[in-house]
Design a protein around this nucleic acid. Structure first.
Length: 388
DNA sequence: GAGGCGTGGAA
DNA sequence: TTTCCAAGCCT
């Protein structure tokens, strides 16, 4: 009774966020825009998504433009955003939906498309097509756990939370505005019912919140303790010639960082590499030293990177050659340093390349000892600037 | 169904 | 520094 849909919608009408993918109040949303934004927002913050969304829509203004593009072009626009299977599924999905002449307008058919799970199917259905369902994301789980004081820990409580969340839009006011109601719950979770210190005094549902009544709102939702993150180690090699060309290679099309471009290197194992074993994986190590002579590798730095399920430490070695040997398919391919932004570099590899180039740049200047954090990336642009 | 799958900002 | 975690999906 006190979880009034009207109260929530009124709050939303006054406090809704203006977001690039959001239609203006009272206007219908574009399913293509909603879909792109929802895929990008999976496990990703709004702040991180906004610049990617803008660039993506400039490059692929329509579903047809996206469907017609090579998947590698999509990955270039996605590089740095993480969870790269999203980009591959997005591209597959575009082909299917364009072939069908548009998005299906029901939850079940949406759910069947690649990259669209229960949450995203409900989100598109509600936001773009006005179907009265509640997409259950982290925000909605948190709000639901609190208003009903559900103390069972995630992720075990997920099913229960979804069941309870589905009861939130029973009133007529919610049924009349499914798109706004769903987004109102997002904005409530993002701005008021926040994870750490919820602003209950500002909450349109404070009178009906069971957790707030007993003062446990900041403790919910509970979560089961997560396991430790194991450490892994790798070695990567930056080789550059006097023409400013780097040797790079492409990772397998699926799996970790699938389809992205990387510096050649070792596997990532749970133990530190010794120098001898690591250098078996250095470029051209299996070739007789030709007229270029032996490659003189130098330690350029160490990169720490954290993935969801392990942390990684990469030793970067760098070397400069007058003339690059001709790479074969196993070696990889050459990329001009000033055209790196045309390749899909993960954030990890962007850091590795930056470290290697910084080292080469500093070491290359006569008598200049390589210094850490010298920031000598003149003329080399690794990311598409936003104009800041 | 449990684990693989990125990243960067905030506290 | 460490920990948490953000509009989850796939196998």
């Amino acid at each position: 009774m006190t979880l009034s849909s009207t109260a929530l919608l009124t709050w939303y009408d006054r406090n809704r966020r203006a977001l690039p993918w959001r239609a203006l109040p009272g206007h219908p949303a574009d399913p293509y825009h909603v879909w792109i934004s929802e895929i990008m927002l999976q496990q990703t913050t709004v702040t991180a998504v906004i610049p990617y969304y803008q660039r993506f829509l400039e490059r692929f203004p329509t579903l047809e433009a996206l469907a017609a593009a090579p998947v590698d072009d999509v990955l270039v626009l996605w590089a740095g955003l993480g969870y790269y299977s999203r980009a591959r599924n997005l591209h597959r999905c575009a082909g299917i939906v364009a072939e069908n002449g548009g998005f299906p307008r029901d939850v079940e058919s949406l759910r069947a498309l690649p990259g669209i799970g229960p949450y995203t199917a409900a989100a598109i259905a509600a936001i773009a097509f006005g179907i009265p369902v509640i997409p259950v994301d982290g925000n909605v789980e948190r709000v639901t756990a609190r208003v009903f004081a559900i103390e069972a820990p995630l992720p075990g409580s997920r099913k229960l939370l979804a069941t309870q969340a589905a009861t939130l839009n029973r009133e007529k006011a919610a049924q009349a505005r499914p798109s706004d109601f769903a987004q109102a719950l997002f904005d409530l979770g993002a701005g008021i019912c926040t994870p750490r210190s919820p602003a209950c005094v500002l909450c349109p549902w404070q009178g009906g919140c069971a957790a707030q009544k007993s003062g446990i709102q900041a403790l919910l939702p509970r979560r089961a303790p997560k396991g430790d993150r194991p450490a892994r180690y790798g070695v990567h090699f930056l080789l550059i010639d006097d023409a400013g060309r780097l040797l790079m290679r492409k990772r397998p099309p699926s799996g970790l960082l699938g389809g992205t471009v990387e510096l050649p290197g070792t596997e990532w194992l749970c133990a530190l590499w010794n120098r001898e074993d690591a250098f078996i994986h250095a470029p051209f190590s299996d070739r007789p030293a030709g007229k270029t002579g032996r490659i003189r590798w130098e330690a350029a730095g160490e990169i720490k990177h954290v993935f969801t399920h392990f942390s990684l430490s990469v030793a970067v070695y760098a070397a400069r050659l007058p003339v690059m040997p001709n790479p074969d398919d196993r070696d990889g391919f050459l990329v001009r340093a000033d055209e790196l932004q045309k390749n899909a570099l993960s954030s990890l590899m962007r850091k590795c390349v930056e470290t290697g180039l910084d080292f080469i740049g500093a070491a290359g200047r006569d008598g200049d000892p390589p210094s850490k954090k010298s920031g000598t990336m003149r003329n080399v642009k690794l990311t598409e600037g936003e104009g800041a």
